[in-house]
Amino acid sequence: MPSIPVAHLHEQGQDMVIVIMDSGFARAAPNHQEATIAQLQALAKLNGLKGTIAMVWDADGKMDYLAPQPWHDFFRSITLDDVRSRINAEIKW
């Protein structure tokens, strides 16, 4: 069964499901990015993971992200290594 590891966090009163993506995700068309997020959101719910999907990836040695606007300060304050160290769940399909 395929799966993807995630960091399932509760930060700033919000439930987050953070997925580490390949850096190519940043170059995907916006509609493809949105479709991927929607698919992972549905799968996360089926896997019992409460929260909103956020995507992160390596951008030339720094972490970039696609997350709800209210979470941007949080994502600017962490690194990809922080996310990796907090992986505690997975999405299976």
Rank of each mutant, 00 (worst) to 15 (best):
P70A: 05
A29I: 04
H32T: 15
S77D: 05
G24L: 08
T52K: 14
I20M: 14
G51E: 08
F25H: 12
V56T: 11
F74A: 03
V83N: 00
I53M: 05
Q69W: 11
I37S: 08
A67G: 04
A28C: 11
P30I: 09
I20A: 07
M21R: 13
S85C: 03
D81Q: 09
W57H: 09
Q39S: 07
K62S: 13
R86D: 10
A35C: 00
A26N: 12
M55S: 11
A67Y: 01
A28L: 13
A42Q: 13
I37P: 05
M55K: 00
A54L: 06
I91V: 11
T52G: 00
L49F: 02
W93C: 07
K92V: 09
D81N: 09
E90D: 08
L43T: 03
M16S: 06
G61D: 06
Q39E: 07
K45P: 00
I78V: 15
K92H: 14
I4Y: 01
M21N: 02
Q14M: 14
Q41S: 13
I37H: 04
N31V: 15
A38D: 08
A7P: 05
A42S: 10
N88K: 01
A38S: 12
L43C: 06
Q14T: 09
S77Y: 03
V6A: 01
I18M: 06
F75D: 02
D15Q: 12
H72C: 07
L49T: 03
S85R: 15
H10D: 15
Q14R: 13
A38K: 10
L40Y: 12
K45G: 08
